[in-house]
Design a protein around this nucleic acid. Structure first.
Length: 154
DNA sequence: GCCAACGTTGGC
DNA sequence: GCCAACGTTGGC
């Protein structure tokens, strides 16, 4: 059982949009970064939990918890010419991009802001990838210890 | 294989 | 809107 952190821009797809989906479930499509793809394709397992993180917004932070309900499979938005994330290099017979399905477990009563997380960047959350300078990776693994500590903050 | 140019991310 | 950091691309 692994833990993750998945970023999404609330203006594009926020936690309330996820909550409004049938079965509160969505395809995590549109990821166009090889490292993040590898996590989805090779490492994320059904039952894994992830923090849902709002990025590039007024108050960046963790806003909820989601569960992986379908393991890596081809991201078909890459095959759709009309899609924003279309990629001519991705061949349906040899897909370049993958996605997983996640289901909302719960929305936090109050977000755990990036500022709050940073307060612990030299303590309990030392080494957390999200807090590393310049980190832009949209999916990062979270250690069990970090996961528990953050849950206690919630 | 190097590396400059470019596009994107994301905090502020 | 700015800009630093980073991944990717492509010329050589």
């Amino acid at each position: 059982m692994n833990y993750w952190l998945m970023k999404s821009e609330p203006e594009t797809f926020g936690i309330d949009a996820l909550a409004a989906r049938p079965r509160r479930t969505t395809h995590w499509d549109g990821v166009r970064n090889f490292q993040a793809r590898n996590f989805m394709r090779d490492q994320m397992r059904i039952g894994d939990l992830a923090f849902f993180y709002h990025s590039n917004c007024e108050e960046p932070g963790i806003v909820g918890i989601v569960k992986v309900v379908k393991e890596g499979y081809p991201d078909d938005s890459a095959f759709d010419r009309k899609d924003k994330h279309y990629d001519a290099e991705s061949d349906p017979n040899k897909p370049r991009w993958y996605m997983v399905d996640v289901q909302l477990q719960r929305k936090l009563k109050a977000p755990i802001t990036l500022a709050t997380l940073r307060e612990h960047s030299n303590g309990a959350l030392r080494g957390m990838l999200l807090l590393k300078r310049g980190n832009r990776l949209s999916i990062t693994p979270v250690s069990a210890a970090h996961w528990r500590f953050i849950l206690d903050l919630a």
